[in-house]
């Protein structure tokens, strides 16, 4: 697997969620994802970016345009050094929220992409990776 291009951008305040979405959209087009997949990836990015701001006290989004055999992909990693997720099973349950959300951000993001992984430990922050392939 080759990384064709990569970068990082800050996800600290609500406006950064908008910027993260715009970046995700631009890169998804560049990676050659079709419209439905662009929309899915951007929506997943929106969920994770907002979680980073709201629960993770802000962090960063790493992006990579990947190439593997004849397909291309866009991988996004959201990192924060916030409180972390104490109960992962609960957090990954449809409809569970510790705030006033719908509790569909994490589980929904997982359903919207091809690859999904989340790592978190209390006090250590959270890291969520998503990837969508052409």
């Amino acid at each position: 697997m080759n990384v064709l291009r990569s970068g990082t951008q800050a996800v600290r305040i609500e406006q950064d969620v908008v910027l993260a979405r715009q970046t995700a959209r631009k890169l998804a087009v560049e990676a050659g994802l079709r419209l439905v997949d662009q929309t899915k990836l951007v929506t997943a990015a929106s969920e994770l970016a907002r979680n980073t701001v709201v629960y993770g006290r802000g962090g960063d989004m790493d992006w990579e345009i990947l190439e593997e055999e004849r397909r291309k992909g866009l991988r996004l990693t959201f990192r924060d050094q916030g409180p972390g997720i104490a109960d992962m099973k609960l957090a990954m349950t449809d409809g569970w929220t510790s705030g006033g959300g719908l509790g569909l951000g994490l589980t929904g993001a997982k359903r919207l992409v091809d690859d999904f992984s989340v790592e978190s430990a209390p006090g250590q922050g959270t890291r969520v990776m998503i990837c969508k392939w052409t």
Partner: peptide, 13 residues
């Protein structure tokens, strides 16, 4: 739009 409809379904809304 169709792409929004599909996304809404996957999101679980």
């Amino acid at each position: 739009r169709p792409q929004i409809a599909q996304t809404i379904v996957h999101l679980g809304l």
